[in-house]
């Protein structure tokens, strides 16, 4: 399976290299993740860290909802927890999720960024700092511009950047803003993205 890359990146160049995948989604994000995350096979090796904007409430059902549908274990991120390979972590509502040395997960209650907590930019920037070129960043559907800056940080650190094709997104602003900030390595539909992730994750092409 070949994917065309606007930046000329070949898929062979990152096979086996990716230790973590960071995903940012907003409006329409639960549905988008519903296509993406269940497509990851049990053998998928990278750590998956997800920020999705959602109403601020004490309990989030995201981990429960996706646990039932995914082959990989799904958890809400806990502060200071080691980032396990092959595990999907959701940022808890009303906290920023960051990656610290280890790599381990870190939460912060710092002020919202672009009105968002958790913030996609905050996760992506700290993951880029920790994982460098061993990171892939994905910007999905959303009605704001969070993640554009973060994805630029992933690119600057040598990571792989993926953006959902705006015309396939329920809300196109977020992928559009990410693309306006600089070229992404791949601009794909969710189904294509899922296939590409399987290729980079050491799992079998399904």
């Amino acid at each position: 399976m070949d994917f065309e890359s606007p930046t000329g990146l070949s898929t062979a160049s990152f096979e086996g290299r990716i230790d973590a995948v960071v995903v940012g989604a907003s409006a329409g994000g639960v549905e988008a993740l519903g296509t993406l995350l269940p497509a990851l096979p049990r053998e998928f090796r990278p750590t998956v860290l997800v920020v999705i904007h959602q109403p601020r409430e004490r309990r989030s059902l995201l981990a429960d909802i996706f646990s039932a549908r995914c082959a990989l274990p799904v958890q809400e991120a806990q502060d200071k927890e080691p980032a396990q390979p092959g595990t999907i972590y959701f940022a808890p509502p009303d906290y920023h999720l960051l990656v610290d040395d280890g790599p381990s997960l870190a939460l912060s209650a710092d002020e919202p960024v672009l009105f968002s907590r958790p913030s996609i930019d905050v996760l992506f920037e700290s993951a880029a700092d920790t994982y460098g070129h061993r990171l892939a960043g994905l910007i999905l559907t959303g009605a704001n511009s969070d993640g554009a800056r973060g994805l630029a940080a992933v690119r600057q650190a040598g990571g792989v950047t993926l953006v959902q094709r705006p015309d396939t997104a329920l809300a196109a602003s977020m992928p559009t803003a990410a693309l306006a900030r600089g070229p992404a390595d791949f601009v794909l539909s969710l189904e294509q993205m899922a296939r590409l992730l399987r290729m980079m994750g050491g799992g079998h092409e399904g």
Binding site: K80, H96, L98, V99, D100, D101, A106, S108, D110, V122, E125, S126, D129, T130
Partner: peptide, 9 residues
């Protein structure tokens, strides 16, 4: 202090 958020600040 935890470094990730301190670095950001």
């Amino acid at each position: 202090y935890a470094m990730a958020s301190l670095k950001r600040r």
